[in-house]
Amino acid sequence: MKKKLTTVVFRGTPEQEEKLIAAIDKYKGVKGAMMPILQEAQSIYGYLPIEVQKIIAERTGVSLEEIYGIASFYAQFKLNPDGEVAVAVCLGTACYVKGSGQIIEEVSKQLNVAVGSTSPDGRYSLEATRCIGACGLAPVMTINGEVYGRLTVAEVAGILEKYR
C-alpha cells in the first residue's frame, strides 16, 4: 500500500494547534502513546500533514521519520484530506473500454487535481475506483456519492459546474 503525499495547502488554525498540543501533553509520560496521539491529531485536522507531524515530533522527541513510518503503515491514517467535493471515476473494465480513462483525464484537467489526491485548496478530491457494479451505465463517476452514468467527455464540465 503506497500512500500518496498531499498537495493541499495546510490551513490549520491556532485553535487546532492548541487542541493538538493539549492532546500531546495529555499523553506526557504515557508509554507507547504515539498511536493515540496520531488518532487524536487526525480527529482534529482530518488528516496528518507534515505540519502536524512536525509538531508531534517536536513535542514528543520522536523523530519525524519514525512518526511518518507509523502514519504510512496503518490504513486509517490519512495523508490527504477528503475534498469538499469528492469525485470518483470508475476504471473497471466496462467503464474503461467505454472511455472512462478520458473522463478521468477531463475531470483532472477541469478541477486541476491529480488522480489520487486533493486540490491544494482542499475543495476537490479525485480518485479512481474499481468496478462499482454500474456497468450498464458505463462510463460512470460519482460525486459525493451521487452517480452520473453514460458520460461523455463533453458533459463533464457541465456536471462539475454544479459543484463549483
Binding site: 508509554k31 507507547g32 504515539m34 519514525e66 513510518g69 507509523i70 503503515f73
Partner: peptide, 9 residues
C-alpha cells in the same frame, strides 16, 4: 509493538 506505539511489525 503497536501498543508500544510503533509500526505494527
Amino acid at each position: 509493538t503497536s501498543i508500544e506505539g510503533n509500526r505494527g511489525e
